[in-house]
């Protein structure tokens, strides 16, 4: 009986002069007043995406600071492991180029400082570059570093400059994704910092894992020919594949 009455009565009502109820038989009225519904999947998806972003912003705004901070650190970390395979390859490329921990530290620092700069600038909307170009050059940067590993024994002096320049680009890549994700307005800088921190942890993790695995054999004389060069070649190959894919 519940529904028997519900069907008769529960149909819903709308603003004063805009009469149409939810009774299926009344849909004809709606269709006449407003025209047929037009389902365009692309538009529905775009609307959904925008709505998700709004929902996220609301949820974030309602969270305590520490929770938000943690979420952004985690997001930054996940952007390297496991999702940032191209960033992992770039960092590995740097790793294979170095025999001394010292030179690796300098390169990674240059890379980090550079991508932090552009990440902040781009997230603030001060720098903008088409995503397609950025992504293509990021792929190229991987090829470059890996090829260089094969040609030189020791990283050259100006290599730091190149790494720094590539770092600037990688920062733009992070920023593009971060902007789509949406930073909360009231904690903009701290959440940006949190995200960057996550990225650094991710990078560090890659290097530590690589270091632990390769440490024992690094000083062997076959290391360069048997490990470093083949690994670099593979990295270069993947980078090249991406470059072609992203350009064409």
């Amino acid at each position: 009986m519940n529904l028997f009455r519900a069907v008769l009565f529960s149909f819903l009502f709308i603003t004063s002069f805009n009469l149409y109820s939810h009774n299926p038989e009344d849909f004809v009225i709606a269709e006449i007043e407003r025209g047929q519904m037009n389902f365009e999947n692309e538009q529905i998806a775009a609307e959904y995406g925008a709505a998700l972003k709004r929902q996220r912003a609301r949820r974030l705004a309602a969270m305590p600071f520490y929770k938000k901070f943690y979420i952004f650190v985690k997001a930054g970390f996940q952007h390297i492991i496991p999702e940032g395979i191209d960033h992992i390859l770039f960092v590995l490329g740097l790793f294979f180029s170095c025999i001394t921990f010292r030179s690796l530290l300098w390169q990674v620092t240059a890379f980090t400082v550079a991508h932090s700069i552009t990440l902040v600038l781009a997230a603030q909307g001060l720098v903008q570059l088409s995503g397609d170009i950025v992504e293509a050059i990021i792929a190229l940067s991987i090829v470059w570093v890996a090829v260089e590993n094969c040609l030189y024994k020791e990283p050259s002096k100006w290599r730091y400059m190149i790494v720094f320049a590539f770092g600037l680009l990688h920062g733009l890549g992070f920023a593009a994704l971060l902007t789509q994700y949406g930073l909360p307005k009231d904690n903009f800088i701290s959440m940006l910092l949190a995200f960057n921190l996550g990225v650094e942890f991710g990078q560090l993790a890659v290097l530590v894992i690589a270091f632990v695995l390769i440490k024992m054999i690094m000083k062997k004389n076959w290391y360069s020919n048997e490990i470093k060069i083949p690994a670099s070649l593979i990295i270069a190959g993947i980078g090249l594949f991406w470059f072609i894919e992203r350009v064409f």
Binding site: N2, A6, S10, L12, F13, I14, T15, N18, Y20, H22, A30, E33, R34, M37, N38, F39, E40, Q43, I44, E47, Y48, A51
Partner: peptide
């Protein structure tokens, strides 16, 4: 509250549980 292409026009109230 917001309009979207997979929502019928107008405004209404309804319930998910009585």
């Amino acid at each position: 509250y917001f309009t979207r292409s997979n929502k019928r026009g107008g405004a209404w109230m309804s319930s998910f549980k009585g």
